[in-house]
């Protein structure tokens, strides 16, 4: 690892690494949380963010001056998550990893409603889950969500509507979750 770090420093005469490191330290916790919601798995989230940050670093000279590095990083991460490549890798992990670290564990800070909702969100198709995470966790606009996913605003609207319908279907018998409506 040290050799690699030195190597990257040698390749980085303009000090971009320091800028990147500062940005990464400030922003990675948010990326990790989002990745956890996207993947539903602690280790898969770490892996996803590590790769996304590595790719961001390699492109740092051209993106560091962009208006929103956060948006660029998010886009890399979402693309990485949804790419065929990523799917192949994840499937391999699923086959070989039988640990239960990603099973929700009820606790004081994790009530039954949260567990049920999390289970329902994780059961959503990948794209719908990504839309829900970006719209309702990251609180992006429909346009920003569409940009991050590389789809149209119309697709974001329809996927959001479908996802909420599905969540209502899973949770509709709970009194505290009645009255959900999609924001359009």
């Amino acid at each position: 690892m040290l050799a690699t770090a030195r190597e990257m420093t040698v390749d980085d005469p303009l000090g971009a690494r320091a800028d990147f490191e500062s940005w990464m330290v400030a922003r990675q916790a948010k990326l990790l949380r989002t990745a956890y919601l996207l993947t539903g798995d602690v280790h898969a989230a770490e892996d996803l963010v590590q790769t996304a940050l590595a790719k961001l670093y390699l492109a740092w000279d051209r993106v560091s001056g962009a208006p929103s590095v956060d948006a660029y990083a998010r886009k890399i991460m979402v693309n990485e998550h949804t790419s065929m490549w990523r799917r192949l890798w994840r499937h391999r992990e699923v086959v070989t990893d039988t640990s239960s670290h990603d099973v929700p564990v009820p606790g004081e800070e994790y009530d039954g409603v949260g567990a049920a909702l999390w289970t329902a969100v994780r059961a959503l198709p990948e794209r719908q889950r990504a839309v829900v995470v970006l719209r309702y966790y990251e609180q992006l606009s429909e346009r920003e969500t569409a940009d991050a996913l590389g789809v149209t605003v119309g697709t974001v609207k329809s996927q959001t509507s479908r996802a909420l319908d599905t969540l209502r279907g899973h949770l509709g018998d709970r009194d505290d979750l009645t009255g959900w409506e999609a924001h359009r």
């Binding site: 690892m1 040290l2 690699t4 770090a5 190597e7 990257m8 690494r17 490191e21 990464m24 330290v25 990675q28 916790a29 990790l32 949380r33 989002t34 956890y36 919601l37 602690v42 989230a45 770490e46 963010v49 590590q50 790769t51 940050l53 590595a54 790719k55 670093y57 390699l58 670290h101 564990v105 800070e109 994790y110 949260g114 909702l117 999390w118 969100v121 966790y137």
Partner: peptide, 24 residues
Amino acid sequence: READQFFTRGGAALDVAQVLDRAG
């Protein structure tokens, strides 16, 4: 609330060296 569980379920912040290693 669910996202915050990342760190209580064993998730950890990444070290810069890890990221640079992957970039390498």
